[in-house]
Computed example of a mutant assay.
Amino acid sequence: MGRKPSDSEQTRWASMALLLIGLASCSVAYMFLSGVLRPANNSSVLKIESLDFDGSGGELSECCRGIENLELWGAAVKWGTEFKFNSSEGCCKACKAMCSGNDGPCLCDTWVFCGNREACGSKFGECWLKKQKDALTPDQQEAGNKVMWTSGVIFGKGQGIIGLETGYGTLHIKLLPECAPRSVAYILELLSLRHCAGCHFYRAESRGQSWDSEGNHIKDASFGPPFALIQGTLEAQGSTFNKIHTEVCPTIRRGSVALVGSGPEFFISLAKHTEWEKSYTVFGTVLPEDMVIAEKIAQLPTKPDVWNHINVSVLEKPVPLWFRRIERVMKI
């Protein structure tokens, strides 16, 4: 049989119960207020499964381009006076080799090469490998026709991912500077503007009956219309757009982000378009888990139109878009 607690014991247990209730109440209040009052943060933490994905189908290894007449600065990890190559491609690949590990940051994210024998003189062949404080805003030393250097940027696994914001969700895009350095440089300019007024999607076409859910073309089906893409413009109001020369490397695959001609028109492909071969500049690729957002935009109400004798589907209401930084990336 249990013993009836004395008055002093009752008082002690009552005090402890009140203390525990008070602590629990404080914890609940803290969690509520921290959720309500947490300051907005434009630099999100991205949790994704496909950090290693580049969407090039192995073709990215063929790409190793830079921008001529450009010298990028940064802390040197290999001194060019003691590290020389016969081509900019060799210099680029040397940097890429230092950024191929499965873990940790890239040891090299910038390469600078002197390839003009006449202008470089004794510096001909010098390959400077460097490390930026911020690879999305590389430190530029000098640019112009008088600059004898060629420079390029490398993004490793989990790096070079930016957010393309729409009202239907954020499309996370892995940039491909080795394939399209000038196009990527323009995207980074838009990123630094912190706005993209005037940028929007205006055309949307589903996969129809020609491609399956993986983007594979169905045997004997037509190649469109519809053409399995969403198309828009990246010309920001208030800024001057300079045409970008075609930079081709990967073929168009599901998720490819490419310029049309010299820009600023661009599209995101919903399917593999091997029939287009390498007609467009692929400067990035949408991470697979975000393609559901692109598919959602492709299903929005459209109206028919004709462009150069080709039937297309134009969005009844354009979808505004803008870019933002992704500061930290976590793999799940």
Rank of each mutant, 00 (worst) to 15 (best):
R38Y: 03
L33D: 10
C26A: 11
S44F: 04
S27A: 08
A24W: 00
L37Q: 13
A40M: 05
A17M: 05
N42T: 13
A24E: 06
K47E: 15
I21Y: 01
I21N: 03
G35T: 02
N42F: 07
P39H: 08
S25V: 06
V28P: 08
R38V: 14
N42K: 06
A40D: 14
A17S: 09
K47T: 15
F32L: 14
S44A: 04
L20P: 15
S25L: 07
L23M: 05
R38A: 11
G35C: 01
A24G: 14
A40T: 15
A24R: 00
R38F: 05
V36D: 01
F32G: 11
N41A: 09
F32P: 11
A29S: 11
Y30V: 12
L19C: 06
A29I: 03
A24Y: 01
N42G: 14
N41D: 11
V45N: 08
L37E: 11
G35E: 05
E49K: 10
L37C: 11
R38N: 14
S50E: 08
I48Q: 11
L46Q: 09
A40C: 07
V45H: 03
L18W: 01
R38G: 13
L23I: 01
N42A: 14
S34D: 02
S34K: 00
L37S: 14
L51K: 04
S34A: 03
N41K: 11
V45A: 04
M31H: 10
L19Q: 00
G35H: 00
G35Y: 01
S43D: 04
S15L: 04
S15R: 02
I48N: 07
S27M: 08
S15Q: 02
I48S: 13
S15E: 03
L18Q: 08
A24Q: 02
V45T: 08
A17I: 07
L18E: 07
I48Y: 02
S25C: 12
V36M: 05
S50D: 14
L37V: 12
L18M: 11
N42W: 03
S43N: 02
L37W: 05
S50V: 06
L19M: 10
I48M: 09
A17F: 03
P39E: 09
S27G: 10
V36R: 00
L23Q: 01
S25R: 02
E49S: 14
L18V: 12
S44M: 09
V36H: 07
L23E: 00
L37M: 10
S43F: 00
S27C: 11
I48R: 05
A17H: 02
G22A: 07
A40K: 13
S25K: 02
V36T: 10
C26M: 10
I48V: 15
N41P: 15
L46R: 08
S15I: 02
G22C: 08
